[in-house]
Amino acid sequence: MEHAAKAMTGPVQLACFFVGSALCGIDINVIQEMNRQLEMTRVPQAPAYVLGIMNLRGRIVTIIDLGRKLGLAPSKQTDSSRIIIVNSREENIGLLVDRITDVVKAKWEEVGPTPSNIKGMKDAYFLGVLKASSDLVAILDVEEVLGDE
C-alpha cells in the first residue's frame, strides 16, 4: 500500500487526529464530515471493532472504533472524541477518534514510506508517513482500514 503513496503526486490536505497516542491523517477528499454526536445504538453480535450504528440525518451509519481496528486499545469515549465520517464504497462509515487536530497541507511527494512497525499497528493500513512540523503523521489508507476483517 505504500506504493499507492508513491504513485500519487500533487498537493494534499490531511485532516489529522489522534488515535491513542498515534497521530494519523486522512486525505480530506475522503472525509465527508466530522461530528461530535456520539449517541449510537449498540449492535450485539457485531464484530468487536464496531461500536454501533448511528442516525446521520436519516441514514444508518456504521461507527467503527478506529483505535481497535488499527490494533490498539479500545477507545474510550471522552469529551474530545469525535467521529469522522468517511465515504467508502458508496457507504458512509464513521470512525471514532480521540482528538482532532489541524488540517495539514502538504504534497504527496513529501510523503515517506511507512516504517514497518509503526507504533504497533499494521503497516498495511497506512499509505505513508508525513513529517509535519515536529510530528510524524501516519496517513491512513481508509479503504484498507475499512476492510471487512
Binding site: M40, T41, V43, P44, Q45, A46, P47, V50, I53, M54, N55, G58, R59, I60, V61, T62, I64, R89, E91, I93, L146, D148
Partner: peptide
C-alpha cells in the same frame, strides 16, 4: 427499513435497522 452496512454481514440476527420517531435507531 434501512440496510445495515457491510461490516454487519456476519450478523445473522438482523434484517436491517430503522430510525424511530425520536431519532433513535432500532435494530
Amino acid at each position: 427499513v434501512k440496510p445495515l452496512g457491510r461490516h454487519f454481514k456476519s450478523c445473522q440476527g438482523y434484517a436491517g435497522a430503522t430510525i424511530m420517531g425520536d431519532g433513535h435507531v432500532a435494530l
